[in-house]
Amino acid sequence: MNVFRSLRAVSEASGTGLVDWAKAGEAAKASTEPGRLDLTPADREGYATDVRDARDRLREVAGVDFAVPDAIEVQNRHHWIDANRETFRNVMEPIEAAATPAMPELSRVVNTGSMAFALGFLARTVLGQYDPLLLADDPDADHGLYFVHPNVVAVAADLDVAYPRFRRWIAFHEVTHAAEFGAAPWLSGYLESRVERGIDGLRASGLDPDAFAELQTAMTAVEGYAELVMDRAFDDEYADLRRKLDARRGGGGPVTRLARRLLGLGLKRRQYERGAAFFERVADERGLAAASAVWERPERLPTAGELDDPAAWLARVDP
């Protein structure tokens, strides 16, 4: 890690946009150790087997049919930064096109530093990721499934759990996201439309609260369903893994907790908890197939009110 090189990259930000994305990536990588990626044949086979077994178990237990992406990558932290810099850029591009900052050079440096901080922090935190390529330049590109191997190994050691078992549980979580988007071909377009509406509102110096509310509600369903199904489909004990990972999500030192607040990770944690509570109630009352029915069409997504009142959702959709 070279903090000086990271700061220098940020200070050299140039171009015409709000963010110099090349320098943001350079600064993020300079401030982040890549981590070791010296995978053994057993490691590589382990990831492949975990993904394959998770797919088969999810098809059986949740009753949803889907394909696992061809692009399954085991990455280090720098690989993750490179893969997600484009995602950040795609989201920011419409805002950049409309913005006219009073001090463009200074704004570019500040914004580049903010993006570098976000990319670096997340690269040190993310364990796995299903990437549906929202707002991608090529909508027909294959979705991605990533595992940040150094983080998986480090967190398993930090939680004092066996690495192969922890890796497998994380694979079940990410493959569950692949199942959601595979079972609901409309989901990517639904989320993109809400993001675009929200961005259009910001560009017009206004705000579309309905778009952001619908986006947050949908993402709560996405995260909550994954939390439920990864546990119920997992073919080993998981209570200790769940307890330890939940504690870790809310822990860390003052700097880590501040970073999580700045990046909205507290909101993501609440999405996990609120969505999981909704689907637990639905599955306990009607079975997992009823919970999976949420992906049949957009009208079956719960409303914000129904997330806290699963009985109202069941009465409305009667899955």
Rank of each mutant, 00 (worst) to 15 (best):
R269W: 06
G264L: 06
R232M: 13
G266R: 02
G266Q: 07
F234I: 01
A247V: 05
R261M: 02
R249G: 00
V255A: 15
A247G: 10
L262D: 09
A233L: 08
R232P: 03
G250V: 11
D236S: 11
R261Y: 02
R270L: 12
V255P: 01
R249Q: 12
L267C: 00
D231P: 00
D246F: 08
R248V: 02
G266C: 03
K268L: 15
Y272E: 10
G253M: 03
D246V: 06
L263D: 03
E237M: 03
D236Y: 00
G250S: 14
D235A: 13
R232D: 12
P254H: 04
V255M: 12
F234L: 07
P254C: 12
L241E: 10
V255K: 09
G251N: 08
R242H: 09
K268Y: 11
P254G: 10
Y272G: 08
L267F: 07
R257L: 14
Q271E: 13
G250I: 09
T256W: 01
G252Y: 07
R260P: 04
D236R: 12
R260L: 03
G251T: 09
R249T: 06
A233W: 03
R270Q: 14
L262S: 13
G252C: 05
R257E: 05
P254S: 12
V255C: 06
G264T: 05
G264W: 02
K268W: 12
F234Y: 15
L245W: 06
L258K: 00
K268V: 15
V255S: 11
A239P: 01
V255E: 14
L265G: 01
R269K: 13
G251M: 05
G264P: 05
G252A: 09
T256M: 06
R248D: 06
E237D: 15
D231H: 06
Q271R: 13
R269Y: 10
A233Q: 00
A259D: 08
L245Q: 09
Y238K: 04
L263P: 03
D231F: 00
L241A: 04
R232S: 08
G253Y: 05
A247Q: 13
R269F: 10
G251E: 11
Y238Q: 03
L267R: 10
D246T: 10
G251R: 07
A239E: 15
A247C: 05
